[in-house]
């Protein structure tokens, strides 16, 4: 039979991550009500990035999985970033 020697994540870790995700959600909703001008979008996106890092690392097991999946993820993230940067350079300096 197949030998599964990966470490399994326990229930407790998942529940802690879920609580953290809920906490970040309440923070982002609360902050949205406060007027912070130009920083509002930056803060909202930073919190979304932290939340997605938690989901990707723990819920999607990327932290404990084969390194090749991390490489895949990095490549797709970099591709998206380059597309965004190039589009905005084009758009802003047009």
């Amino acid at each position: 039979m197949s030998v599964d020697n990966k470490q399994h994540i326990g229930y407790g870790t998942y529940i802690l991550v879920w609580l953290a995700l809920l906490a970040f959600t309440s923070i982002t909703v609360t902050i949205a009500g406060v007027s912070l001008g130009r920083y509002t979008l930056f803060i909202a996106l930073s919190i979304a990035a932290i939340k997605s890092a938690l989901v990707i690392n723990i819920f999607m097991h990327i932290r404990f999985d084969e390194p090749i999946f991390k490489t895949f993820l990095a490549i797709s993230g970099a591709t998206l970033l380059i597309i965004f940067l190039l589009t905005f350079f084009d758009y802003i300096y047009r």
């Binding site: 949205a32 909202a44 996106l45 919190i47 979304a48 989901v55 990707i56 819920f59 999607m60």
Partner: peptide
């Protein structure tokens, strides 16, 4: 089951970005 869960988490991930961009602009 793992692959189905990965799909479901992706659906969650996309919502994590949709939510502040559409609902939280005040």
């Amino acid at each position: 089951l793992e692959n189905s869960a990965l799909y479901w988490h992706l659906v969650d991930l996309i919502w994590i970005f949709l939510f502040p961009l559409f609902y939280l602009i005040q």
